[in-house]
Design a protein around this nucleic acid. Structure first.
Length: 799
RNA sequence: GCCGGUGUGGCGGAAUUGGCAGACGCCCGGGACUUAAAAUCCCGUGAUACGAGAGUAUCGUACCGGUUCAAGCCCGGUCACCGGCACCA
């Protein structure tokens, strides 16, 4: 049969659509399965084969679940606010609304052509008013609870995009969008107090099934450490200098202190500092350095001694010099440290450079050469002397500090609060009014959504303010509280806002009274399986878990965690083995593949490439192998006969078993390999029965649904193959009556024997001796040991 | 530096978790069909040595060592590459 994939594929896409077979049911007693994939950003360049891979995994799983009788929710939508569209609007003068609609239409068309079984009735677009109304609603709830607040602080700022970035958006000191160097700038910005949820986010990980590396990355990102806050005295004042340390046990070894260049102590003590000019010069030098430069010079410590003020060690009473240095960051702990050069590498480097004393307090190592960071017996440490266990020393010191009011135990997180505003047009307006008398007043809930006003110029202003600031009719308003003249907030929310709760909206996408109906959420939540990219593990995943947990705490959602299970797909690399990118010219367009090879080939190939979680290079040749496979499948109806081969029947049941379990483990490559193998078995057998064909077609259906529907229909299958019951295997048929077992002599394979299933040791050894070749090998040797592992191996040790 | 991961034929990758290494696919070689080519089908295909030959032997999962009747898998050490974080006190 000449298989016309393009006609068959559009035929079945149309039929599925008309029969509404992939739409989730809301009121049923069926067990549910909520499969979620990361919704795409509808960029102007269209889809990438990487998108297809990201969706294909759960596509197969969801299709299998439907065949297993589940009520499946497998939705898709578009995360459409954000800079790329806005930048394109600036360039072309076309309104982002139009660009977004155009891009979404294009993405939708591409996704449909691949035959994904999404529920298209629940599609969402984060830039629609009835969607971002609820994004604003959640923001206001956070504002009410004090979790959204304004503060003046040093922020990551991209001079090229003219925008404030969160920590998560400026990883590696580069702007996530344009990759320019980001700089530190003092600005009045909005924050979401995600740090308040650090412990809950950490604790929640214990109750979810994420891949171990995903969990680990989140744990590292949150970066919880335990230690102590210690208040050091300062000479000539009652003022205390508070520091954070994870090593309070080394307090007796403190020989100097360091504060960050931005530390407020400098300004406060300016009149007592003897070398203010020198210090100010140092501060200026530091602000000129980018974050990147500051972290690059790891080994080369710089700093300036603060003249006129010394620290006082609270346990020994010793006076110690105080420095300002940029190896201490204002953003972590208290921005001030106690330095123990004997037992900390950075302090050691600094002490060596500035000629500061190094006093060991832990025995071990050679402090003439390097800092000793290991454990050992405490020395030179007053009441800690003689202790050998680090945890004991820490506990005893914290107890001492607490008793004497010198400090206390505490924890710190690397994660920082989420800088939440952007000086841009294409985002959700922050629904806050600035009133000269009432201060910051939330827009009342019944006035949501606060709509984006129409504008024609999308460039940020000269001072880096949002384009919204130029729209007088938007900015000028009355205070909802006092009715007086007020000004609206003109900043918008960051890209990550809309995606922080989208999985809730799929449950009830048209609800105009709530985020989603509570009963529906009780049925559908949590998301059973969420798949996406590793690049979102420390951003979107943390943000959305934070929002969800917050919504749970205020009773708006029924579960503390949004996602029960999370997996990640690996990248598709270009044919050259490099990451696909426009500049390298190695990008593969899924459209081309669908046109030339068909959607089924694309789907099967992407899953056959290799381990789903690993990166793999694209190979046109390898894909042709998949095309051959499907063409041979298309020829199967011609091989149907009534004669049944028991060998084939057994092979079929083994494959049902393997494909069923491989899909659950996302081992799609071996599932497909098993089906290819079965096809070879069919050729060996010469024919297969109609029933066997129908079973095979159902197994392959989640991978290559168009072809399978076509065969299913041709061969008189009932209804849609996509909804036919998932094949069951007969365990008895997967087990062969006899097994061929390798026989080793001294660990080397010397022959094979065929034995009944689970044959005992005697039977096995008798068979070995009955084999002339093996018997000859054993001739004249002394048998030392005979190892028989039923159905696996026989090993005879001889001398 | 820290955390995580990977290392297997010419290539993508398998290996029931300690039991015949290289499934499946690609590439390549040979053959069939064809005027010819493409497509398709069949056979072969880790390396080396011996053999005319079916075959036989040795070596082989980054490297060194160990445990075990048996190691790609476990343990100790080394190297390389990839991803994330990075002066986090």
């Amino acid at each position: 049969m000449k298989y016309d994939f393009s006609a068959v594929e559009s035929k079945w896409q149309k039929k599925w659509d008309e029969a509404h077979i992939f739409e989730a049911q809301d009121n049923t007693d069926k067990p549910k399965f909520y499969g979620l994939v990361e919704f795409p950003y509808p960029s102007g360049v269209g889809m990438h084969v990487g998108h297809i891979k990201a969706y294909s995994g759960l596509e197969v799983i969801c299709r299998k679940r439907r065949m297993q009788g589940y009520n499946v929710l497998f939705p898709i939508g578009f995360d459409a606010f954000g800079l790329p569209t806005e930048n394109s609007a600036i360039k072309t003068g076309i309104h982002p609304r139009q660009l977004t609609d155009r891009n979404i239409a294009r993405f939708t068309d591409q996704l449909r052509r691949v035959g994904f079984s999404f529920d298209w009735t629940r599609t969402i677009d984060t830039t629609q008013e009835d969607y971002y109304k609820w994004t604003q609603y959640i923001f206001l709830k956070m504002f009410e609870k004090g979790l959204a607040f304004r503060d003046t602080a040093l922020v990551n700022y991209c001079p090229h995009c003219k925008v404030v970035l969160s920590n998560e958006d400026s990883q590696g000191g580069k702007c996530d969008i344009c990759h320019s160097e980001i700089i530190q700038k003092s600005k009045d910005v909005w924050y979401l107090r995600i740090t308040e949820y650090a412990d809950k986010l950490l604790e929640g990980l214990e109750h979810v099934d994420y891949l171990p590396n995903i969990k680990q990355q989140q744990v590292n990102w949150i970066g919880k450490s335990r230690g102590a806050f210690v208040n050091f005295g300062l000479t000539g004042t009652d003022e205390k200098l508070r520091i954070y340390t994870t090593r309070p046990d080394t307090l007796f070894g403190v020989t100097f202190m360091v504060i960050a260049p931005e530390h407020p102590l400098i300004a406060k003590m300016a009149d007592r500092i003897g070398n203010m000019e020198e210090i100010q010069a140092y501060q200026t030098a530091c602000t000129k350095k980018t974050e990147f430069e500051r972290t690059q010079l790891v080994k080369d410590k710089t700093g300036v001694r603060i003249q006129g003020i010394c620290g006082i060690n609270p346990v020994s009473g010793k006076e110690i010099p105080l420095y300002i240095a940029d190896y201490v960051m204002m953003g972590y702990g208290t921005g001030a440290i106690m330095a123990v050069p004997a037992h900390d590498e950075r302090d050691y480097a600094f002490a060596k450079k500035f000629g500061i004393d190094i006093i060991p307090v832990i025995k071990g190592g050679d402090i003439d050469k390097e800092a000793y960071t290991g454990e050992g017996e405490m020395i030179n440490s007053g009441f800690l002397n003689g202790l050998t266990n680090k945890a004991d020393s820490i506990a005893k010191m914290i107890e001492y500090l607490t008793e004497h009011g010198l400090g206390e135990g505490g924890v710190q997180y690397k994660m920082k609060d989420w800088a939440f505003n952007r000086q841009r047009y294409w985002g959700e307006p922050i629904p806050i009014v600035h009133c000269p008398t009432c201060g910051m007043v939330p827009v009342p809930y019944d006035q949501l959504p606060l709509r984006l006003p129409p504008v024609t110029e999308f460039e940020p202003g000269q001072g880096g303010e949002s384009p919204l600031a130029r729209v007088e009719s938007f900015v000028n308003c009355t205070c909802p509280r006092c009715g007086g003249k007020a000004r609206r907030e003109t900043d918008t929310m960051p890209q990550w806002a809309g995606s922080s709760w989208y999985f809730l909206r799929y449950i009830d996408p048209h609800n105009s009274h709530a985020i989603a109906d509570m009963d529906k959420m009780r049925y559908w939540l949590p998301v059973d399986w969420y798949n996406g990219g590793m690049e979102h593990v420390t951003r979107h995943m943390i943000y959305s878990r934070f929002w969800h947990r917050f919504l749970y705490d205020i009773g708006e959602v029924p579960t503390p965690e949004p996602y029960a299970k999370r997996t990640a797909q690996g990248l598709i690399l270009g044919p050259d083995g490099e990451k696909m990118s426009k500049s390298r010219g190695n990008v593969v367009d899924p459209n081309d593949v669908v046109r030339e090879m068909g959607a089924d080939v694309l789907r099967v190939y992407i899953l056959f490439m290799g381990d789903y979680g690993a990166a793999a290079p694209w190979s046109e040749n390898s894909m042709r192998g998949c095309k051959r496979f499907l063409e041979r499948v298309a020829d199967l109806p011609g091989k149907v006969s009534d004669t049944e081969s028991p060998v084939l029947e057994s092979a079929l049941h083994k494959v049902i078993k393997k494909v069923s379990s491989d899909i659950e483990e996302m081992k799609f490559n071996t599932a497909i390999a098993a089906m290819m193998g079965l096809l070879n078995d069919i050729d060996d057998a010469g024919s297969l029965t109609r029933e066997q064909l129908m079973t095979f077609v159902r197994l392959l259906c989640p991978f290559a649904p168009h072809l399978c529907e076509e065969i299913w229909e041709q061969e008189g299958g009932q209804g849609f193959c996509s909804l036919a019951p998932w094949p069951e295997f007969d365990e008895a048929k997967t087990v062969d009556e006899t097994v061929e077992i390798a026989v080793q002599i001294n660990g080397k394979v010397r022959g094979k024997v065929t034995l009944p299933q689970n044959a005992d040791k005697d039977t096995a050894l008798t068979a070995v001796r009955a084999d002339p070749k093996l018997a000859a090998q054993l001739e004249g040797k002394t048998v030392v040991k005979e190892i028989v592992i039923p159905n696996k191996i026989i090993n005879i040790v001889v001398r």
